[in-house]
């Protein structure tokens, strides 16, 4: 694989469609993400935001169109799917930590099983990541013993342990109490500054404004509008965008 130039797209989606039975959930999504970009996706509930980012690591299958991640096309080929999953990490709204494993085991599981690393190496990197997300002292605890904010930071560390190129976040702070949102957003901001390519579904507009390179507004399975945070906030073109922004910025 050739070294990616910073201007090369690392994710290319062309005319992506997805149906759930009769329901047309994604109606022709086009998106190119360059290496190191931070993309924020927002829009009303049920607009297909989750569905879209979940097609990128094949948690959902798209039925037509093309998705290419780091020059690997997503097809029915299991090898491609596995290769893409090694390059992308995902952070879920509900954290989805493994409750039967300690924090350290949660983080080292995939490096040990997928990358077949030595235990010492995996644990060393896991501890570095726990330092980075600010909770090294929790390594031996179980997820059930942590607060929501701590759990979500472990989930981020767990994804990062795979040494990946792309991070997908699906409403990472929506299940958190207000005082914990900041600790997770701080970790995400630091991650963005370190040059990670990020796709973030979120309604945290402060985060979007300060960190996002581009924002995409989704409605009814389509991209209604996209642009820099400046453009979207100060000069939205579409009525639907204006309406939605006025609703979420009110409170």
């Amino acid at each position: 694989m050739s070294e990616n130039n910073n201007n090369d797209p690392i994710i290319v989606c062309q005319d992506v469609h997805k149906w759930y039975g009769q329901f047309h959930a994604l109606r022709g999504i086009d998106m190119e993400v360059r290496k190191g970009e931070v993309i924020v996706i927002f829009g009303p509930s049920g607009s297909g935001k989750s569905t879209f980012i979940r097609t990128i690591n094949r948690l959902e299958e798209h039925q037509s169109g093309q998705i290419v991640v780091d020059s690997i096309e997503l097809t029915h080929d299991v090898r491609n799917i596995e290769a893409i999953r090694k390059e992308t990490g995902m952070v879920f709204q509900q954290f989805n930590l493994f409750p039967h494993l300690t924090v350290l085991q949660n983080i080292t599981l995939a490096p040990l099983q997928v990358h077949k690393w030595k235990k010492e190496k995996a644990e060393e990197i896991a501890m570095q990541l726990l330092e980075r997300v600010g909770i090294p002292e929790q390594a031996e605890k179980f997820p059930g013993q942590l607060s929501g904010g701590q759990q979500q930071r472990v989930a981020i560390a767990r994804a990062l342990a795979m040494q990946l190129k792309i991070m997908l976040f699906d409403e990472p702070t929506s299940a958190l109490d207000p005082e914990m949102i900041k600790e997770v957003l701080d970790v995400m901001t630091e991650l963005a500054e370190s040059g990670m390519t990020m796709l973030v579904v979120t309604h945290e507009m402060g985060f979007a404004r300060s960190v996002a390179d581009r924002m995409f507004f989704f409605d009814e399975g389509q991209i209604v509008e996209s642009g820099s945070p400046e453009d979207i906030y100060n000069n939205p073109q579409e009525d639907r965008t204006k309406l939605f922004l006025s609703q979420i910025l009110q409170h």
Binding site: N57, R85, M90, N96, F98, A159
Partner: peptide, 15 residues
């Protein structure tokens, strides 16, 4: 075992 557990595992690259 919630679906989220399986998704998290698959997203991490476990088969």
């Amino acid at each position: 075992v919630s679906k989220g557990q399986i998704e998290a595992s698959r997203a991490l690259g476990l088969n």
